[in-house]
């Protein structure tokens, strides 16, 4: 067992973890942040994506002990004050989800992308999205939602 203190959605949390346990399982089972989903456990599907120190990463490919001191954003950290973020709201309006199981990982991935590249075009969005599998939507409504949400990120960046 090792004691780690990641900063999760802005709050430092100290937790004891066995060395062999992944970050994904720790978030889910120890910290009860079950919005992060596990769908393949071998780094292909993207459902478990969280943002670690600003970068979207697959939390099933990272051991919890590696996350000591890291700033982590999960899907639970995307909305503020109980209000959907611009990205989440765009997803709802475009019906960019059906069963919702892949959605958390897609939201975190696209959030990380738009923070860094608020001007990402459709091609770039699709390229990045190709690291997340969705079985329900055919991806088209997701791309539409992300394209629309860009404006909010551009605005935030320009400080408007």
């Amino acid at each position: 067992m090792t004691s780690i203190t990641p900063i999760i959605n802005g709050v430092a949390v100290t937790v004891e973890v066995p060395d062999r346990v992944t970050l994904a399982d720790t978030l889910r089972d120890k910290l009860r942040l079950t919005g992060t989903h596990v769908a393949c456990e071998h780094g292909v599907c993207g459902a478990c994506t969280v943002i670690v120190d600003g970068l979207a990463v697959r939390s099933c490919l990272m051991l919890a002990v590696q996350a000591d001191g890291a700033a982590i954003t999960t899907v639970e950290g995307l909305s503020k004050n109980g209000k959907l973020s611009a990205l989440q709201d765009a997803f709802r309006r475009h019906h960019a989800l059906q069963c919702g199981f892949c959605t958390s990982g897609i939201l975190t991935t696209m959030h990380a992308l738009l923070l860094e590249e608020p001007d990402a075009g459709e091609h770039r969005i699709r390229e990045v999205l190709s690291g997340n599998l969705c079985r329900c939507t055919g991806y088209i409504p997701i791309v539409e939602a992300v394209l629309e949400a860009r404006a909010a990120y551009a605005q935030a960046e320009s400080g408007a």
Binding site: T49, A56, R58, L61, T109, L113, E127, V128, G131
Partner: peptide, 9 residues
Amino acid sequence: IAHYQIRNR
């Protein structure tokens, strides 16, 4: 090489 999340790591 691989996908976005993998290229980050």
